[in-house]
């Protein structure tokens, strides 16, 4: 017995006929082709499937798609505005926070949820915000730095846009 569900994903409206047991992760990856959200443990233990639902981080593997009816779902694919990366995405690149990249979408979404409610987090606040997201490559240090640095990237981008020029991260300009 399928159920018709309206989902707003990355500002696009979708109407899908779904088995009620389908998780948000399955629907994102298999019905909508949004494979940026990663599937790892299906137990809620790794954070790789973190997306934002009405601005709050949720684990897509433990969330039924039908429970997102009428809510706004934001995935990693919805973060970039046209060609411009989100400041947190840029900060991940600038700080060398990306290695294999498999945890990266979930990390960025968890980091964005933090920055949305706390625009200038301390390193310890950043660590706490990603404590549910596992990464085997990096040891987290550069990820924490990226989250802390993102507001500066954002500010630099806005200054750059006002002045009509490009910006460089301070340590990129060396």
């Amino acid at each position: 017995m399928k159920q018709v569900v309206q989902l707003n994903v990355n500002d696009a409206e979708h109407e899908l006929a779904l088995d009620p047991s389908r998780t948000l992760l399955e629907v994102l990856r298999e019905s909508l082709g949004l494979t940026g959200t990663k599937e790892v443990c299906l137990l809620g233990s790794c954070g790789a499937c973190t997306v934002l639902v009405d601005d709050r981080p949720v684990l897509a593997c433990l969330t039924l798609a039908s429970a997102c009816q009428g809510k706004r779902v934001l995935t990693i694919e919805g973060l970039r505005q046209g060609e411009a990366l989100h400041p947190l995405q840029q900060a991940f690149i600038d700080k060398g926070a990306v290695q294999c990249g498999f945890c990266t979408p979930g990390m960025i979404m968890a980091g964005k949820a933090l920055l949305d409610r706390n625009p200038h987090p301390t390193p310890d606040e950043a660590r706490a915000a990603i404590a549910g997201n596992l990464c085997r490559c990096t040891g987290y240090e550069q990820i924490v730095e990226a989250i802390v640095a993102a507001p500066a990237v954002d500010e630099a981008a806005r200054v750059g846009a006002r002045e009509g020029g490009h910006y460089l991260m301070p340590d990129m300009a060396e």
Partner: peptide, 23 residues
């Protein structure tokens, strides 16, 4: 010299294709 990873943009945007993303 500091050189960002060539695949970093693909990885921060979710566009990088892993084996589990092949359908």
């Amino acid at each position: 010299k500091k050189t960002p990873k060539s695949d970093a943009v693909a990885k921060v945007t979710g566009e990088a294709r892993y084996a589990t993303d092949v359908y």
